[in-house]
Amino acid sequence: MIRVVLADDEAMIRAGIAAILGSDDRIEVVAQAVDGREAVDEVLRTRPDVVLLDIQMPELDGLAAAREIRRLRPETSVVMLTTFNEETYVEQALALGASGFLLKSGDPFELLAGVRAVADGAAFLSPKIAKRVIEQLTGRATSREQVKLLTPKETEVLALLGSGMSNADIAARLFIVEGTVKAHVSTILSRLGVKNRVQAAIVAYEAGLVESLA
Protein backbone atom coordinates (compact mmCIF):
# COMPACT_ATOMS: atom_id res chain seq x y z
CA MET A 1 0.00 0.00 0.00
CA ILE A 2 1.29 3.46 -0.95
CA ARG A 3 0.61 5.93 1.86
CA VAL A 4 0.04 9.52 0.73
CA VAL A 5 -0.30 12.90 2.44
CA LEU A 6 -2.14 15.48 0.32
CA ALA A 7 -1.64 19.21 0.90
CA ASP A 8 -3.62 21.94 -0.88
CA ASP A 9 -5.42 24.96 0.53
CA GLU A 10 -8.38 24.57 -1.86
CA ALA A 11 -10.98 22.14 -0.51
CA MET A 12 -12.40 21.20 -3.92
CA ILE A 13 -8.93 20.46 -5.32
CA ARG A 14 -8.14 18.27 -2.30
CA ALA A 15 -11.43 16.43 -2.65
CA GLY A 16 -10.92 15.80 -6.35
CA ILE A 17 -7.36 14.55 -5.98
CA ALA A 18 -8.29 12.39 -3.00
CA ALA A 19 -11.12 10.84 -5.01
CA ILE A 20 -8.79 10.01 -7.90
CA LEU A 21 -6.21 8.49 -5.58
CA GLY A 22 -8.94 6.55 -3.81
CA SER A 23 -9.86 4.84 -7.08
CA ASP A 24 -6.59 2.86 -6.89
CA ASP A 25 -6.70 0.18 -4.20
CA ARG A 26 -2.91 0.35 -3.94
CA ILE A 27 -3.00 3.96 -2.72
CA GLU A 28 -4.24 5.30 0.63
CA VAL A 29 -4.55 8.98 1.52
CA VAL A 30 -3.54 8.89 5.19
CA ALA A 31 -3.85 12.63 5.87
CA GLN A 32 -4.79 15.94 4.24
CA ALA A 33 -3.39 19.38 5.00
CA VAL A 34 -4.54 22.91 4.19
CA ASP A 35 -1.15 24.64 4.40
CA GLY A 36 2.55 23.87 4.27
CA ARG A 37 3.10 23.83 8.03
CA GLU A 38 0.32 21.31 8.52
CA ALA A 39 1.74 19.25 5.65
CA VAL A 40 5.11 18.99 7.39
CA ASP A 41 3.42 18.04 10.66
CA GLU A 42 1.30 15.37 8.97
CA VAL A 43 4.30 13.88 7.18
CA LEU A 44 6.15 13.59 10.48
CA ARG A 45 3.08 12.12 12.17
CA THR A 46 2.01 9.60 9.53
CA ARG A 47 5.37 8.86 7.84
CA PRO A 48 3.92 8.45 4.32
CA ASP A 49 5.65 7.15 1.20
CA VAL A 50 4.64 10.21 -0.84
CA VAL A 51 3.52 13.76 -0.10
CA LEU A 52 1.66 15.83 -2.71
CA LEU A 53 2.33 19.54 -2.18
CA ASP A 54 0.60 22.47 -3.81
CA ILE A 55 3.27 25.10 -4.53
CA GLN A 56 1.24 28.10 -3.37
CA MET A 57 -0.14 27.62 0.15
CA PRO A 58 -0.50 29.85 3.23
CA GLU A 59 1.61 29.67 6.38
CA LEU A 60 4.39 27.78 4.62
CA ASP A 61 4.41 27.50 0.82
CA GLY A 62 5.01 24.23 -1.00
CA LEU A 63 8.69 24.94 -1.65
CA ALA A 64 9.42 25.71 2.00
CA ALA A 65 7.41 22.64 3.05
CA ALA A 66 9.35 20.50 0.59
CA ARG A 67 12.62 21.78 2.00
CA GLU A 68 11.54 20.90 5.55
CA ILE A 69 10.25 17.47 4.56
CA ARG A 70 13.42 16.61 2.63
CA ARG A 71 15.44 17.64 5.71
CA LEU A 72 13.33 15.96 8.38
CA ARG A 73 12.04 12.91 6.51
CA PRO A 74 14.02 12.22 3.32
CA GLU A 75 12.37 8.79 3.01
CA THR A 76 9.16 10.51 1.88
CA SER A 77 9.09 11.32 -1.83
CA VAL A 78 7.89 14.83 -2.67
CA VAL A 79 5.57 15.49 -5.61
CA MET A 80 4.74 19.11 -6.46
CA LEU A 81 1.28 20.05 -7.74
CA THR A 82 1.70 22.90 -10.21
CA THR A 83 -0.07 25.08 -12.76
CA PHE A 84 1.17 26.29 -16.13
CA ASN A 85 2.40 29.65 -14.82
CA GLU A 86 4.77 28.24 -12.19
CA GLU A 87 7.82 27.12 -14.20
CA THR A 88 10.24 29.09 -12.03
CA TYR A 89 8.92 27.32 -8.96
CA VAL A 90 9.51 23.98 -10.67
CA GLU A 91 13.17 24.84 -11.17
CA GLN A 92 13.47 25.68 -7.46
CA ALA A 93 11.70 22.46 -6.49
CA LEU A 94 14.14 20.50 -8.67
CA ALA A 95 17.01 21.91 -6.64
CA LEU A 96 15.24 20.87 -3.42
CA GLY A 97 15.06 17.25 -4.55
CA ALA A 98 11.40 16.89 -5.52
CA SER A 99 10.74 13.56 -7.25
CA GLY A 100 7.72 14.49 -9.34
CA PHE A 101 5.74 17.33 -10.89
CA LEU A 102 2.07 17.07 -11.78
CA LEU A 103 -0.45 19.51 -13.24
CA LYS A 104 -3.56 20.11 -11.15
CA SER A 105 -5.53 20.17 -14.37
CA GLY A 106 -3.82 17.10 -15.78
CA ASP A 107 -5.09 13.66 -16.70
CA PRO A 108 -6.11 11.55 -13.66
CA PHE A 109 -4.03 8.72 -15.13
CA GLU A 110 -0.93 10.92 -14.80
CA LEU A 111 -1.71 11.53 -11.13
CA LEU A 112 -1.97 7.82 -10.38
CA ALA A 113 1.04 6.93 -12.53
CA GLY A 114 3.10 9.67 -10.93
CA VAL A 115 2.34 8.65 -7.37
CA ARG A 116 3.09 5.00 -8.13
CA ALA A 117 6.32 5.93 -9.91
CA VAL A 118 7.82 8.09 -7.18
CA ALA A 119 6.75 5.64 -4.48
CA ASP A 120 8.78 3.05 -6.39
CA GLY A 121 11.84 5.29 -6.42
CA ALA A 122 11.40 6.71 -9.93
CA ALA A 123 11.09 10.29 -11.17
CA PHE A 124 7.90 11.52 -12.83
CA LEU A 125 7.13 14.69 -14.76
CA SER A 126 3.85 15.50 -16.41
CA PRO A 127 4.84 15.72 -20.10
CA LYS A 128 3.27 19.19 -20.39
CA ILE A 129 5.30 20.42 -17.41
CA ALA A 130 8.46 18.90 -18.87
CA LYS A 131 7.84 20.75 -22.13
CA ARG A 132 7.39 24.10 -20.38
CA VAL A 133 10.44 23.60 -18.16
CA ILE A 134 12.58 22.60 -21.13
CA GLU A 135 11.68 25.90 -22.81
CA GLN A 136 13.23 27.69 -19.82
CA LEU A 137 16.40 25.60 -19.71
CA THR A 138 19.20 24.71 -22.09
CA GLY A 139 18.36 23.74 -25.68
CA ARG A 140 18.09 20.32 -27.23
CA ALA A 141 21.48 20.57 -28.94
CA THR A 142 23.24 20.92 -25.58
CA SER A 143 21.38 17.97 -24.11
CA ARG A 144 22.11 15.86 -27.16
CA GLU A 145 25.79 16.66 -26.72
CA GLN A 146 25.56 15.58 -23.07
CA VAL A 147 23.91 12.30 -24.03
CA LYS A 148 26.78 11.57 -26.41
CA LEU A 149 28.93 11.10 -23.30
CA LEU A 150 26.89 8.00 -22.43
CA THR A 151 27.30 4.46 -23.70
CA PRO A 152 24.45 2.97 -25.74
CA LYS A 153 23.27 1.00 -22.70
CA GLU A 154 23.40 4.08 -20.46
CA THR A 155 21.42 6.01 -23.07
CA GLU A 156 18.81 3.27 -23.07
CA VAL A 157 18.63 3.39 -19.27
CA LEU A 158 18.29 7.19 -19.37
CA ALA A 159 15.39 6.96 -21.83
CA LEU A 160 13.55 4.53 -19.57
CA LEU A 161 14.33 6.64 -16.49
CA GLY A 162 12.90 9.65 -18.31
CA SER A 163 9.69 7.77 -19.03
CA GLY A 164 9.10 7.34 -15.28
CA MET A 165 10.41 3.82 -14.70
CA SER A 166 11.97 2.73 -11.42
CA ASN A 167 15.22 0.77 -11.22
CA ALA A 168 13.24 -2.44 -10.84
CA ASP A 169 11.14 -1.64 -13.93
CA ILE A 170 14.24 -0.83 -15.98
CA ALA A 171 15.95 -4.02 -14.85
CA ALA A 172 12.94 -6.08 -15.92
CA ARG A 173 12.70 -4.30 -19.29
CA LEU A 174 16.41 -4.75 -20.08
CA PHE A 175 16.78 -8.23 -18.55
CA ILE A 176 19.56 -7.16 -16.19
CA VAL A 177 19.82 -7.15 -12.39
CA GLU A 178 18.70 -4.11 -10.41
CA GLY A 179 22.19 -3.55 -9.03
CA THR A 180 23.47 -3.05 -12.57
CA VAL A 181 20.74 -0.47 -13.21
CA LYS A 182 21.74 1.40 -10.04
CA ALA A 183 25.34 1.46 -11.24
CA HIS A 184 24.24 2.77 -14.65
CA VAL A 185 22.08 5.48 -13.05
CA SER A 186 24.95 6.60 -10.82
CA THR A 187 27.25 6.87 -13.83
CA ILE A 188 24.58 8.68 -15.85
CA LEU A 189 24.09 11.33 -13.14
CA SER A 190 27.84 11.86 -12.93
CA ARG A 191 28.42 12.11 -16.69
CA LEU A 192 25.47 14.41 -17.26
CA GLY A 193 26.46 16.61 -14.31
CA VAL A 194 23.00 16.44 -12.72
CA LYS A 195 22.04 15.93 -9.10
CA ASN A 196 19.08 13.57 -9.23
CA ARG A 197 16.76 11.44 -11.35
CA VAL A 198 14.36 14.28 -12.10
CA GLN A 199 17.11 16.43 -13.59
CA ALA A 200 18.31 13.42 -15.58
CA ALA A 201 14.75 12.88 -16.80
CA ILE A 202 14.63 16.48 -18.05
CA VAL A 203 17.86 15.91 -19.99
CA ALA A 204 16.23 12.81 -21.50
CA TYR A 205 13.24 14.91 -22.58
CA GLU A 206 15.44 17.70 -23.95
CA ALA A 207 17.57 15.23 -25.94
CA GLY A 208 14.49 13.71 -27.54
CA LEU A 209 14.81 10.33 -25.82
CA VAL A 210 11.28 10.51 -24.41
CA GLU A 211 8.34 10.97 -26.75
CA SER A 212 4.85 12.48 -26.35
CA LEU A 213 5.54 15.97 -25.02
CA ALA A 214 2.57 17.47 -26.82
Score class of each variant (00 low, 15 high):
98 A>G: 12
157 V>P: 09
200 A>M: 03
179 G>D: 04
68 E>Y: 07
9 D>Q: 02
91 E>M: 14
188 I>K: 08
190 S>G: 03
214 A>G: 11
96 L>C: 09
206 E>Q: 11
93 A>K: 14
173 R>Q: 10
136 Q>A: 12
125 L>G: 10
107 D>I: 10
66 A>M: 15
187 T>D: 10
39 A>C: 06
174 L>T: 12
107 D>Q: 11
130 A>P: 11
35 D>P: 03
37 R>A: 15
206 E>K: 12
126 S>R: 11
43 V>F: 09
123 A>I: 05
108 P>L: 01
211 E>F: 09
101 F>W: 08
80 M>V: 08
133 V>A: 00
200 A>F: 06
42 E>C: 03
157 V>E: 04
204 A>I: 11
82 T>I: 06
77 S>E: 05
86 E>P: 07
104 K>I: 04
65 A>G: 01
211 E>Q: 08
162 G>H: 11
39 A>F: 07
122 A>I: 10
114 G>H: 01
144 R>L: 13
53 L>T: 02
102 L>R: 02
154 E>A: 03
121 G>A: 06
155 T>W: 00
5 V>Y: 05
121 G>T: 06
210 V>F: 05
118 V>F: 09
175 F>T: 15
56 Q>C: 00
53 L>M: 00
131 K>W: 04
25 D>I: 00
28 E>G: 06
73 R>I: 12
151 T>I: 04
140 R>W: 01
29 V>I: 06
61 D>S: 00
138 T>V: 15
185 V>F: 00
156 E>I: 02
157 V>G: 07
25 D>H: 09
191 R>L: 15
194 V>R: 04
165 M>I: 02
98 A>T: 14
76 T>S: 05
193 G>A: 05
48 P>L: 11
95 A>I: 10
15 A>M: 06
104 K>P: 00
147 V>I: 10
87 E>S: 08
120 D>H: 03
81 L>P: 01
10 E>D: 10
90 V>F: 13
48 P>W: 13
136 Q>D: 02
31 A>I: 09
17 I>Q: 03
157 V>T: 11
102 L>F: 03
128 K>D: 06
120 D>V: 03
38 E>C: 03
188 I>E: 03
186 S>T: 15
181 V>E: 06
197 R>Y: 13
133 V>I: 12
211 E>S: 15
136 Q>P: 01
77 S>I: 13
37 R>T: 10
120 D>S: 15
194 V>I: 13
194 V>Q: 07
135 E>G: 15
133 V>D: 01
211 E>N: 09
179 G>I: 13
88 T>E: 15
174 L>Y: 01
209 L>T: 01
2 I>S: 07
62 G>A: 07
184 H>C: 08
